[in-house]
Design a binder for these strands. Structure first.
Lengths: 203, 203
DNA sequence: AAACAATGACTGACCAGTCGGTAATTATGA
DNA sequence: TCATAATTACCGACTGGTCAGTCATTGTTT
């Protein structure tokens, strides 16, 4: 499975050679076919397994602190995950093969994207209820904030080409978090003093 | 070139068959080799040409109005471009083949990403100078805002899988623009009354 | 000796790239 | 004006190599 991840990651589904995967795994090509019906099955299974391992590694609790602190912690974790080699590879392969494996894509969205978004959304909800964040649709806000991190992670993972837009990971994390929190903060609330009287102005 | 765009777009570089491209273009395979040394050259040339055509189509002026209105117009245009089939395909292919064609990637970043970012950055700069936007690094803000649009465009272009996160394009545009403007607005300025006394609080 | 696990040579399909040939167009010259 | 030559544009059968998937064989365990 690791071998499949490496070879598929390097060359993509179409250009990867089963024999290379076998060699890297220390087995012969025939052995692969004892466990997988064909190349595509090995591919999708590899994606699934890698995503699951990544999710398990990422499972965290964001209990303590006010919503802002929770959100900061959440996005710190997200940023770490998105910058891992596993995400980089899985994301690239998924986006490319999406049309060829629609059911895999649906599974990914359900198990990964939606799950992550719901977590962020619930934190934001709490922040809105407490008056720290402005009145806004938490799902929408979570979605948009998530988008910030995904694209920046892609850039960060491709430093060579995206040097212009990919700075120091910690600095970028800080910038993104600040940006998102600014967008969320209720107009009257100040960063250090969460409580405020008025709610968001419009919508 | 159009045929190459369609076939490469459908199957990717590795899985695309030159004969299919030839057929779609209404010529024979041999003819392709009269104009391109090999498959890769056809691929990179196709990307370049498509990007250039897209840029030319996108060249707009954002002269009138206050920075907020300019930014709104800018992002409306960006959103349109990102949602075009050309962008969807080029972006997907670029991201996937980035490692195999580093110089193409650099060219893309220079000619497309950086150019777009600089435009947004200059508008934001003006907004900061006018006190409408808070004190912040305009390059950083432009980068982060851009990220919002890119990921959401990818989602929007893959409605089938990302139905959960991809809403009505116009609504999403509105949501993203609002989000970004909220993140940019100086704490004291209200949406409808740009001018204010105090500047951004920190950083 | 039976059951299981693994092998790697082999097959058949596929396809990038070649090249000898054909058709269409233009140039030349009487 | 028309035959002929020269040039250009194009074709598609062919080659050589690659590789997914198979299966008869070999090794290993029970």
């Amino acid at each position: 499975m690791e071998a499949a991840f490496e070879i598929f990651g390097e060359r993509g589904l179409a250009a990867a050679r089963l024999e290379d995967i076998a060699k890297r795994a220390g087995v012969s090509k025939g052995t692969i076919y004892l466990y997988f019906p064909n190349k595509e099955a090995l591919f999708t299974e590899m994606i699934r397994e890698m995503v699951i391992s990544q999710i398990e590694r990422a499972e965290q609790e964001y209990a303590g602190g006010d919503p802002e602190q929770q959100l900061r912690a959440y996005y710190r974790g997200l940023w770490q995950n998105l910058n891992s080699p596993i995400f980089e590879t899985v994301h690239r392969l998924m986006m490319f093969e999406l049309k060829n494996f629609p059911q895999l894509g649906e599974w990914y969205v359900r198990e990964v994207v939606t799950r992550a978004l719901n977590l962020a959304s619930s934190i934001i909800s709490r922040g809105i209820a407490l008056g720290e964040f402005r009145q806004t649709d938490p799902d929408v806000a979570a979605r948009i904030a998530h988008a910030v991190f995904v694209t920046n992670a892609v850039w960060a993972c491709n430093r060579n080409q995206f040097a212009v837009v990919a700075g120091d990971p910690d600095a970028v994390l800080e910038q993104m978090t600040d940006f998102v929190l600014h967008a969320l903060r209720s107009d009257t609330a100040t960063p250090s003093e969460p409580d405020a009287t008025g709610a968001g102005s419009r919508e």
